[in-house]
Design a protein around this nucleic acid. Structure first.
Lengths: 164, 164
DNA sequence: GCTATCATGTTATAGTATAACAACCCACGC
DNA sequence: GCGTGGGTTGTTATACTATAACATGATAGC
């Protein structure tokens, strides 16, 4: 097993459905935990999911402004902070961009395959990678708190080799 | 074996010496490859090494300006571009900062342990991690071009567990 | 020396993110 | 109901990060 692929590359799934699912899951999760998924936060989450690509903060801001004229940078950054803190969204460090978290209920670390051609992103949740990294770090006396693993290259559609 | 640790945490080595070594290696490498390690580029590389921490571009700029009044943002960014392209410097994506590459002659991928308390960074060159990541990605049909692996936490001095 | 090329200077601007304080809203206890 | 207290959002300003575009300068090979 290659591990769970929580978000697949473009074309491999029903995108409208995955957005709806993500919102429903977010609603349920926040209800369980007593978190306030306000209209603004919910809408930002929806906008993050609305493209199948990493989205930049100022693109979200532009979208938001179409329907909420008062939106300013802090509006979107604060919503993103909430969503990230509660694992509903991930930040892709190497792109300064954001993607919806594909499995907010799973314990996970944030491993991403990022296609440089079509910008599609797949989120992995591979325990073997996470454990290997953690073991090596521990062996050096380092206490791991957060793993940022971002793999750039070409997705299968854009020139990757066929999967086995 | 935990793999090579190419840059150790604060206090574990002779820092003045490692800076000198890095510069000497850079000189030699550029001479071999016909690259122009100009005074500016050499100085920026030296400034990157001069602290044992990730350095931000505008801190480098401030340092540079003390001795070269005409320095502007492109001055430092262009020098960094050259140094990164030739593997003499790494960019830490999660910090928007730069560190000297500890082993520019080794084939390597850029794996970093980053202490959130003292900001020390250790560069790993762990083949097992790199191979595991590459194998998983390949298994999904993805062609890997670049791995960004940044592990945040606490170094041994700041609260990490003792190394075995 | 000429010239092509690469390097640097210079000005301006694009892109990313946060500080600081004001206003609002809503759940809760009185 | 009525405050009141915390969390959310509005608002303005600014800090931080990076690049575009064009001018000028240095260098190497001919």
């Amino acid at each position: 097993m290659a591990g769970d692929v929580l978000s697949t590359f473009r074309g491999v799934h029903d995108h409208g459905r995955c957005t709806d699912d993500a919102l429903a899951t977010a609603e349920a999760l926040c209800a369980e935990k007593g978190l306030r998924l306000t209209a603004l936060r919910r809408r930002v989450l929806e906008l993050v999911w609305s493209r199948h690509q990493p989205v930049r903060a100022y693109d979200l801001l532009e979208d938001l402004r179409a329907e909420r004229r008062r939106a300013a940078p802090p509006t979107v950054y604060r919503a993103l902070d909430f969503l990230i803190a509660n694992r509903l969204v991930h930040r892709i460090e190497s792109l300064n961009a954001y993607v919806g978290c594909a499995g907010p209920r799973n314990p996970h670390v944030g491993q991403f395959l990022i296609c440089r051609k079509c910008s599609a992103v797949a989120e992995l949740n591979d325990g073997e990678i996470a454990r290997t990294v953690a073991r090596k770090a521990r062996g050096l006396g380092f206490t791991v708190e957060r793993q940022t693993i971002e793999i750039a290259g070409l997705c299968p559609q854009c020139g990757g080799t066929r999967a086995a």
